[in-house]
């Protein structure tokens, strides 16, 4: 009869080296991810200014955040609008580009490279470029081009109604190449026989797309949407670099205020690190819930 101790010894002999080799990763994982996360969860229940000792306040940060903080609600509204627009438009355009440039000829390869380039460029450099393009008066490229066609100069960065459309434009432009590459990979896994069978059955191009391509791309779409959601909810550089004012991180009238810039503002310019931690955990819950909903929808559609 084999005792549990003997099983344990056997397992250790068999896998011990593997566990030992995992140790460096586990140490880093615990030190730089698990520990800060646990710490941030604790801090979200405290009043902590970063210098003096944290004072436990229970759920006060969450109560204030959800019921008393107009600026947080404004940031939340802006973020949802931005996420829906950027992920929605970005996913559609990624799919469109993939359908247009999924071939193996060099013109398609060149186009794929061109659209993928922003994904491998430093986001800081890209944001500075956008800032330069959107400069007011006659210095910005956007206004210069508009001027060639008789258009009036627009104060892009000081017109609150334009802030979110500009942020969406920057996000879609920067991210659609990445989505395109994933969709192209997905398209290449669809067996050509399915299309041949559909054609024999008299399916039109649109019907082939709707009944064959889209359903078989569902795992890719789920991945593109979930990663897009996570990235969009965490938008920071675009707001911080392009729209930040001297005393206001969210641009004119907070028109570009999003959750993560607000978190940064509270934690690192107003010494409210406990409150900022609470914002971080609310953001985590939102992203987690939406990702779960998305995965469930994907699974439900698969079962149809």
């Amino acid at each position: 009869m084999t005792t549990p101790a003997a099983v344990s010894r056997h397992r250790w002999r068999r896998h011990g080296t593997s566990y030992l080799m995992l140790l460096p990763f586990l140490a880093l994982f615990a030190g730089f991810l698990v520990w800060p996360l646990a710490n941030s969860l604790y801090l979200s229940f405290t009043r902590f200014d970063g210098v003096t000792a944290p004072e436990f306040t229970g759920l006060e940060n969450f109560r204030r955040l959800l019921f008393d903080d107009d600026r947080f609600r404004h940031a939340l509204g802006n973020t949802f609008l931005y996420v829906v627009a950027s992920v929605g438009i970005g996913t559609l355009l990624s799919l469109g580009l993939a359908l247009a440039f999924s071939g193996s000829g060099w013109p398609h390869r060149v186009m794929r490279t061109v659209f993928f380039l922003p994904s491998v460029t430093s986001s800081i450099a890209l944001m500075l470029l956008w800032k330069w393009i959107l400069n007011p008066g006659d210095f910005g490229l956007a206004n210069t081009v508009a001027g060639w066609f008789g258009g009036r100069a627009v104060e892009w960065l000081a017109t609150p109604g334009l802030t979110i459309p500009i942020l969406v434009l920057m996000s879609v432009w920067g991210g659609m190449g990445y989505g395109m590459v994933l969709y192209v990979a997905g398209l290449n896994t669809i067996p050509q026989e399915y299309y041949e069978a559909a054609r024999i059955d008299g399916a039109t191009s649109w019907q082939q797309f709707r009944r064959v391509t889209l359903p078989l791309l569902r795992p890719v779409t789920t991945y593109v949407v979930v990663t897009g959601l996570i990235g969009a909810f965490q938008v920071f550089e675009a707001v911080y670099i392009v729209f930040r004012g001297t005393n206001n991180i969210g641009g004119v009238l907070d028109s570009g205020l999003m959750i993560v810039p607000y978190l940064y503002d509270q934690g690192f310019t107003h010494f409210k690190l406990g409150y900022a931690s609470a914002i971080a955990w609310v953001l985590f819950v939102i992203i987690f819930a939406l990702s779960m909903v998305n995965l469930r929808i994907g699974r439900a559609l698969k079962e149809l």
Partner: peptide, 29 residues
């Protein structure tokens, strides 16, 4: 065995939070 693993996992999380609490800041000595 499974119960032991679950208990160890719970202890680990609690320990980490306690560690976080202790190490968040030690005040201003």
């Amino acid at each position: 065995m499974r119960r032991t693993t679950a208990a160890a996992r719970a202890a680990l999380i609690t320990g980490l939070i306690a560690l976080g609490a202790g190490c968040a800041t030690s005040g201003t000595p």
